[in-house]
């Protein structure tokens, strides 16, 4: 079955997994830095696609991408994990939030090649033993979603907070989502959902 995702060509993404060796933009020929020694030049990678391995949701995934490809682009492009959303692409809206070694970061402002052996967790990896993370269940229960574009990032921040601090204060929740923009204004429901998911609410 064809979907919007498979139909729309990803020509805007310079990820070379689908077309190995095809330099996407080819706007400038690579130029060796004048000062580098021969050994150093060998150590430099790119600008053409290079082989990378990312550990995403506990699984090592190999793919090829240019050094300029961000983690968010690699996740959505080469790794086809489209739960992570790119909105502002400048670290301003936090919709692309994923975890790096368990800490929320904006995946649009880190290069995939810079991730190295740090563990990446995306919204797709939040489910545990077939169960939604308590933050996910609470978002559904409290209708903390409207258009949904900011939701995966919001959930990643709130889930990280609950994992770190099972009984967060309202201020802690506000601090955790302080980087997120939601044009629909779901903030009150997001806060209510996260507080409801805390252990305190359950006990």
């Amino acid at each position: 079955m064809i979907s919007r995702r498979t139909f729309i060509p990803r020509s805007d993404l310079p990820v070379a997994a689908a077309r190995p060796g095809s330099g996407a933009a080819g706007d400038r020929s690579p130029k060796e830095p004048e000062t580098a020694t021969r050994r150093d030049v060998i150590a430099a990678q790119g600008p053409d696609a290079v082989a990378m391995t990312l550990t995403v949701n506990g699984i090592a995934r190999m793919f090829e991408a240019e050094p300029r490809v961000t983690l968010a682009e690699a996740l959505r492009g080469a790794l086809a994990l489209t739960g992570t959303k790119i909105a502002c692409n400048r670290g301003t809206c936090s919709s692309c939030t994923v975890w790096l070694d368990g800490t929320p970061i904006v995946s649009c402002m880190i290069l995939a090649v810079d991730v190295g052996n740090r563990a990446v967790t995306t919204i797709e990896g939040l489910i545990r033993d077939g169960n939604l993370h308590p933050a996910q269940a609470a978002f559904i229960g409290h209708d903390a979603i409207q258009c949904g574009f900011c939701t995966p990032g919001m959930v990643m921040s709130c889930a990280a907070l609950l994992d770190r601090d099972p009984r967060p204060t309202r201020d802690a929740v506000l601090a955790a989502i302080s980087g997120h923009l939601c044009r629909c204004g779901t903030y009150p429901h997001v806060v209510a959902a996260t507080l409801a998911a805390s252990e305190e609410a359950k006990s």
Partner: peptide
């Protein structure tokens, strides 16, 4: 734009690159 990438493991090597 496209760029090459390197991740040296010593300050001296990084400084040598940083023209």
């Amino acid at each position: 734009k496209r760029f090459a990438w390197t991740q040296p493991t010593s300050l001296a090597s990084a400084a040598a690159f940083a023209e």
